[in-house]
Nucleic acid binder design. Sequence first.
DNA 1: GTAGAGAAGAGTCTACTATG
DNA 2: CATAGTAGACTCTTCTCTAC
Length: 267
Amino acid sequence: MIQEILARQQHESWGAKVIERLSKDLRRDFPEMKGFSARNLKYMRALAETYPDELFVQQLVAQIPWGHNVRILDKVTTSQEREWYIYKTIENGWSRNVLELQIDSGLYRRQGKAVTNFTRTLPPAQSDLAQQLLKDPYNFDFLTLGQDAHERDLERGLLVHIRQFLLELGAGFSFVGSQYHLDVGGDDFYIDLLFYHLKLRCFVAIDLKMGKFIPEYAGKMNFYLSVLDDQLRHPSDEPSIGLILCRTDNQLVVEYALRDVNKPIGV
DNA sequence: GTAGAGAAGAGTCTACTATG
DNA sequence: CATAGTAGACTCTTCTCTAC
């Protein structure tokens, strides 16, 4: 049917109101069926035009709900990006609202962009996966924090909105604790947020910094990760990963700071 | 031949509704 | 109450036709 719209639009010259007429005809002939509004037919037409490859449609497009496809057609312009969002929707089971949120926040462009030292500190398979999971920047717009908020405020905010925070982090993160206590020979240390990643099979320690990145953070994180690996890590777990979230970073500084750190850290 | 008006297509935003 | 399907209303684009 869709092919027919395309064909008829080609045949009958411009301005023949092809879609509108077809919509009327269909609604008259099948009054019990819904979904034949001119608007919806245009979506169908757009879909057929966007994905001319039938096999592709069956394998991918058909796996997500119609409403999702409509949103993707509406909001995403390049076919590469569309395909990517479809894959992610299937993979993560996003609802329409979540999908829209991810598209609006430009997830596609942020994915895998964080500066890390994973390629050097992790085995190849692990490092690719870990790199993919980190974004730059993370978007915490759901928090309404003032300019002068402190790390604790940020942390508290993230905990209150833990659901949205997990969503922003991505699939697979499971929350272990906040201000996670580490006892090192009688001295006390606290990790801001501790997660376990189900796919990577490792702990992910998150350090929150309100200001811009400074090299000392990497050293501190390196220390935390050593302690984590010794005290908490199960022999079958992969090495723990550290993530430093700060307001801004200077790529060059981060790269130098991470160069000689032997634990996997992302900023 | 081309500028401009008018009409329809294309795209976007949003809200209503059914359903489980 | 969250999710997914649907479509109205709006703006922007594209096309055609006519007058000069």
